[in-house]
């Protein structure tokens, strides 16, 4: 079983990305959980969301304390939300930032694997505006998910909520995020 933790700020779509990841993992034939950590919900406040992915039925219902992968959607949370908490040195820290992985290592003191991607810029370039989707693209690339499976789930899920042209922009951003890290 793999455990993943997302850090974002309220309104940035970390919870949505977590749920999309669960949809994608289901299509791969996995068992999944996706859940946010709830406090008072406010736009801009740091939030965490979690994924569990397993080949077997997931029975555990505790919180995730020791994730193997951490995805940070908002770079300011490197300081504000202790995203390396519980992350072992074998784990992966994926950060949305224009900075290099060495700079993030310096900033966080984390000595394991750090991957950086400027997801905010990718989203701006694509015109979708939300960094969560290119971050999701990057994350599924890191996890080794097949692109077509992931893309079709993202497309399906976003199409339920968004008009077609916005879905297209997001898919572009998703692909760019994936390409960056595959």
């Amino acid at each position: 079983m793999k455990e993943i933790r997302w850090h974002g700020r309220g309104g940035q779509g970390a919870k949505t990305a977590s749920q999309l990841l669960a949809d994608i993992n289901l299509q791969e034939g996995k068992f999944v959980q996706s859940f946010p950590e709830y406090g008072p919900e406010r736009s801009g406040a740091p939030i965490r969301a979690y994924n569990r992915v397993s080949d077997k039925k997931i029975r555990v219902h505790s919180g995730v304390d020791e994730p193997e992968v951490v995805a940070v959607v908002d770079p300011t949370l490197l300081q504000a939300a202790s995203p390396t908490e519980g992350l072992s040195e074998d784990g992966v820290l994926l950060v949305n930032t224009p900075n290099s992985s060495d700079e993030v290592k310096d900033e966080t003191g984390f000595t394991g694997k750090v991957i950086t991607i400027d997801a905010t810029k990718i989203a701006e370039d694509a015109g979708s505006g939300y960094a969560n989707i290119p971050m999701l693209g990057a994350l599924v690339a890191v996890l080794g998910t097949e692109y077509e499976v992931a893309e079709s789930e993202v497309s399906k899920a976003l199409s339920k909520k968004l008009p077609e042209e916005i879905v297209e922009l997001n898919l572009e951003a998703f692909e760019a995020g994936y390409e960056k890290l595959s």
């Binding site: 669960a22 999944v32 959980q33 996706s34």
Partner: peptide
């Protein structure tokens, strides 16, 4: 069903 633990968790 357990609040949050089950109600807010997306699962299969």
């Amino acid at each position: 069903l357990d609040g949050f633990t089950l109600t807010h968790t997306a699962q299969v």
